[in-house]
């Protein structure tokens, strides 16, 4: 985890040699801004505070929100977008974006579903995984090899794969009968509370990715590339190699998200999860990861996905129209990106 921007003075170390860059101007406003920068420099603080505030508001304003059953339901509702958002976080950390992740997941699901319908669910799962990795790698290839902007490359793939999934299935859905393929919707129950294997998997995947980002050289390089590709290259980092690995690895998370989705609803539907791409970006951005790359992480994304779902869940409990839920989510996105712009301005070199 990163340390605070304002530095500790280690005893025994000599005093600072020169003024820190861009000493902030005097005044109350600057003081507030510095305080906010210090607080939000720890990447998870902002999203966590937001989540707690929203939880408190819904607990006070509705009678049905705060109970163990509903909270476990919120987790179950978060897993698909939350798992997609893990892959999306990686990509946004290297200053990319993936508009195709929902379409990749759906293609993997329908291919797996069609093979399972012919009697071999295990094979279906493996082929579905392969489809997700290959499709995500195509993104990585187009972006690193042909230098297309990630927005355009993934927008193109989104359109192509959405149509491909319908052509492949002739617009039919495949009901899933295999227990193995839907197991992530199951889990031990304690009264009204069900802790699904999908929720556990989501937490486990988040921890594994957090480890990879914070404890391995690959993770340091991911942040370095998002921060400054030129500096990373000059320091001998294989920038294209790392970016490609990020897209390919994101495909693995999309495959897991597809498995989660079958646990939620046991149907492989080629027209499902149309806006899962936008939801995953929303979760990442609300979670405090910078769209400019190089700042943020999966802990924030985990919280960000929960915030998105808690908003929907809580506003539903409060009896508010789902269109207002969308408006609320939109405001949050703008707020999160605005805060990043504002707080990040003085710091970027």
């Amino acid at each position: 985890m990163q340390t605070s921007d304002r530095v500790r003075t280690d005893t025994g170390q000599a005093k600072i040699d020169a003024e820190p860059a861009g000493s902030p101007p005097a005044g109350l406003f600057a003081g507030l801004r510095r305080a906010a920068t210090g607080l939000f420099a720890y990447p998870v603080t902002g999203p966590l505070v937001a989540l707690i505030l929203i939880l408190i508001v819904f607990s006070v304003t509705t009678s049905t929100f705060l109970n163990a059953g509903n909270l476990s339901l919120i987790f179950q509702q978060s897993v698909v977008v939350g798992t997609l958002a893990l892959g999306q976080t990686l990509i946004i950390l290297v200053s990319g974006i993936d508009l195709a992740n929902g379409a990749i997941m759906v293609l993997g699901m329908v291919v797996a579903g069609s093979i399972a319908a012919n009697g071999d669910p295990m094979l279906g799962m493996l082929v579905g995984l392969a489809v997700c990795i290959v499709a995500a790698s195509i993104n990585g290839l187009i972006i690193t090899r042909f230098r297309l902007p990630p927005f355009i490359a993934t927008l193109g793939l989104f359109t192509i794969l959405t149509a491909a999934a319908r052509l492949y299935t002739q617009s039919r859905s495949y009901p899933i009968n295999s227990d193995f393929m839907t197991i992530l919707g199951e889990g031990p129950s304690f009264g009204l509370v069900t802790i699904t294997y999908g929720s556990m998997l989501w937490i486990a995947l988040t921890l594994v990715l957090a480890y990879a980002l914070n404890q391995t050289a690959w993770g340091v390089r991911v942040y370095a590339i998002g921060n400054s590709p030129a500096a990373a290259r000059l320091n001998g980092v294989n920038v294209n190699g790392v970016i490609f690995s990020v897209y390919a690895l994101a495909g693995v998370f999309y495959a897991f998200a597809g498995w989660q989705a079958l646990g939620r609803t046991p149907i492989a539907d080629p027209s499902g999860y149309q806006i899962a791409n936008l939801d995953s970006i929303t979760a990442v951005v609300i979670g405090g990861t910078s769209l400019f790359g190089g700042r943020g992480g999966v802990a924030g994304t985990f919280i960000g996905a929960l915030i998105v779902v808690v908003l929907k869940n809580g506003l539903t409990q409060a009896g508010i129209d789902s269109l207002y839920q969308q408006i609320a989510t939109g405001f949050l996105v703008i707020l999160a990106v605005g805060a990043d712009q504002y707080l990040g301005r003085g710091q970027r070199a």
């Binding site: 990163q2 340390t3 340091v220 942040y223 370095a224 998002g226 921060n227 400054s228 030129a230 500096a231 990373a232 000059l234 320091n235 190089g294 700042r295 710091q347 970027r348 070199a349």
Partner: peptide, 10 residues
């Protein structure tokens, strides 16, 4: 010539 440091890293 261009500063070859990653500013977000320590």
């Amino acid at each position: 010539q261009e500063l070859a440091v990653a500013t977000q890293l320590n």
